[in-house]
């Protein structure tokens, strides 16, 4: 059974231009699925619809047509509170631009999912473990403004792993990083996958794409599965 799947999912935007309004399909009729233990990579050029597909899978943007299911349930039929809880516990999203909270320290950024996890949130000790795992223990009480791009990306990954999600969705996790940091970030994602999380990564980079046990290519809003 699929853990997370998109069924004939499309996302259409209205574009406003001098000529008037026009419809634009960022994602067209996409079928996609991952199961527990999968590591999926999606490659494609800028504007191909990768990020839009990813945000639909992460519970952040409802498809215009079609469905997104988690463990067989249509996630966009849930209430906002239920869908938010799903994002908090089961589907963690790592945005392309790090997305850290500037007023919180590295340590607090990592355990920020506690804010919305209620009584079942992991203890703060998990943040210590994750800090160690991403090699940032020394920077625990620094603010994000003091971090490099690679360090911020590692903090974002640690935060995404805090609630031990079933699916980790990463948007261009290695973009703008040097090769060493890129390798470190991909190794962290592989480690999360080894520990049981299904991972979906969107990337430009061929080397990163090769990490996937299942690979996809996206072009003009259409998704195509590649040979293994």
């Amino acid at each position: 059974m699929s853990l997370l799947e998109a069924v004939s999912a499309s996302k259409v935007f209205q574009r406003r231009s001098a000529a008037g309004h026009a419809s634009f399909a960022a994602v067209s009729d996409v079928d996609f699925s991952v199961s527990e233990g999968d590591f999926a990579t999606i490659v494609g050029q800028s504007g191909s619809g990768k990020t839009t597909l990813l945000t639909m899978l992460a519970g952040l943007a409802a498809p215009t047509r079609g469905l997104v299911r988690f463990r067989g349930n249509d996630i966009y039929s849930l209430t906002d509170r239920e869908l938010s809880a799903l994002r908090n516990r089961e589907i963690s999203f790592i945005p392309q631009d790090m997305g850290l909270l500037g007023n919180l320290t590295v340590y607090d950024n990592i355990r920020a999912p506690q804010l919305f996890a209620g009584a079942n949130a992991p203890e703060s000790g998990r943040a210590d473990f994750l800090l160690e795992a991403v090699g940032l223990s020394a920077l625990a009480f620094e603010y994000p403004s003091a971090l490099s791009g690679g360090e911020m990306r590692r903090v974002a990954i640690a935060r995404a792993l805090f609630n031990e999600p079933a699916v980790l969705v990463a948007d261009e996790p290695t973009s703008a990083l040097d090769p060493e940091n890129s390798r470190m970030v991909m190794e962290l994602l592989r480690a999360a996958n080894r520990h049981g999380a299904a991972v979906i990564v969107v990337t430009h980079e061929a080397e990163a794409a090769l990490c996937g046990s299942i690979r996809f290519s996206m072009k003009n809003g259409k998704l195509e599965r590649l040979e293994a």
Binding site: L60, D80, S84, R87, N88, P95, G99, A112, F116
Partner: peptide, 10 residues
């Protein structure tokens, strides 16, 4: 947006 990503409801 970050808070929404990590699970904040509206």
């Amino acid at each position: 947006a970050v808070l929404r990503i990590i699970g904040a409801s509206r």
